[in-house]
């Protein structure tokens, strides 16, 4: 194929965008609306999961050590725990620190006490990446020589695991439904738009155009519509997301302590390729398959 033929096909694809203004507008609007909903739900659900993850990381397990344990063994146990994949952070609290905290909370100070009544309470506080692995970690801690007792909150962990699972399923469900609705609406719009122009395709074929020559401008047009249709909602979601973060931080300060929003870059590192992929992919597949129906002339 001559290079100028290829450029001609690409140029015609661009020109088609303006030749068929109403079709372009309808397609871009449909794609934008679908991907806007998709983007918005994705941002909400991703943040919800992020917040849950943050709360989850506040759940800890306490490993109480034997009273007569050596400093060396204490360090060894600390290293063993820290190496575990489900562990995010470990904090060592000595028996003296434990007593000081306890006395301060209950009696105001340690004055009047000669001995440490909590001398067997040196412990590690362990924060986890994922609470679903709590039971495995607890079993492991119990097996360590030098650990006398493990305190855990099984109910909290189970609640988090349950809520996370529900959020996961709901997220997948909503995103899948939105994705399917988007595909259906967008490909329908592209199909109707090209259906109207089947005569044009037939004329091309009657005068000897190859399938590629007849199809290429429509496919390029479909992909361009996909690109435009995905950029508009991305820009809209970007502004709405930023504004929402500023609004929450400014209006409900108590909420902003509790709710940590995902940084916009992190949301968009997923959303940009997915939205453009959906837009371009549907534009390509929709126009390719629809034109094919009219090529057998």
């Amino acid at each position: 194929m001559r290079i100028n033929t290829l450029f001609y096909c690409i140029w015609q694809g661009f020109k088609n965008i303006f030749r068929n203004k109403w079709f372009t507008l309808a397609s871009v609007a449909t794609i934008s609306a679908c991907l806007f909903m998709f983007g918005l739900f994705y941002a909400i659900l991703a943040n919800f999961q992020y917040i849950m993850k943050g709360l989850e990381q506040g759940v800890s397990v306490t490993a109480l050590l034997e009273e007569d344990i050596t400093d060396e063994r204490t360090r060894e146990i600390g290293d063993m725990i820290a190496r575990r994949s489900e562990v995010q952070e470990t904090v060592y609290v000595s028996a003296d620190e434990t007593w000081e905290q306890f006395a301060e909370e209950n009696f105001g100070s340690t004055d009047g006490f000669r001995e440490n009544p909590l001398s067997d309470c040196a412990h590690y506080v362990i924060y986890m990446n994922d609470v679903s692995g709590q039971q495995t970690l607890v079993d492991y801690l119990r097996s360590i020589d030098g650990v006398r007792k493990v305190n855990e909150s099984a109910l909290t962990a189970q609640t988090f695991v349950g809520v996370n699972a529900i959020i996961g399923y709901v997220s997948i469900g909503i995103i899948l439904i939105l994705f399917l609705v988007s595909i259906f609406l967008i490909s329908n719009t592209v199909t109707i738009g090209i259906q109207v122009r089947k005569e044009e395709i037939q004329i091309m074929k009657y005068i000897g155009a190859t399938d590629f020559f007849a199809r290429a401008p429509f496919v390029i047009e479909g992909m361009l519509i996909g690109v435009i249709g995905s950029f508009i909602p991305l820009i809209a979601v970007y502004f709405i997301y930023n504004e929402a973060m500023i609004y929450v931080a400014g209006s409900w300060e108590f909420l902003s302590q509790l709710l940590r929003f995902l940084p916009v870059d992190e949301i968009f590192s997923v959303l940009v390729p997915v939205c453009i992929g959906i837009g371009v992919g549907i534009g390509f597949i929709g126009s390719y398959t629809t034109v094919r129906k009219h090529l057998s002339v």
Binding site: N4, T5, Y8, I207, G208, A209, T210, F213
Partner: peptide, 11 residues
Amino acid sequence: AFAQRIIQKSN
């Protein structure tokens, strides 16, 4: 010109 483009004539 369209008929000529189909047979890949130069501009």
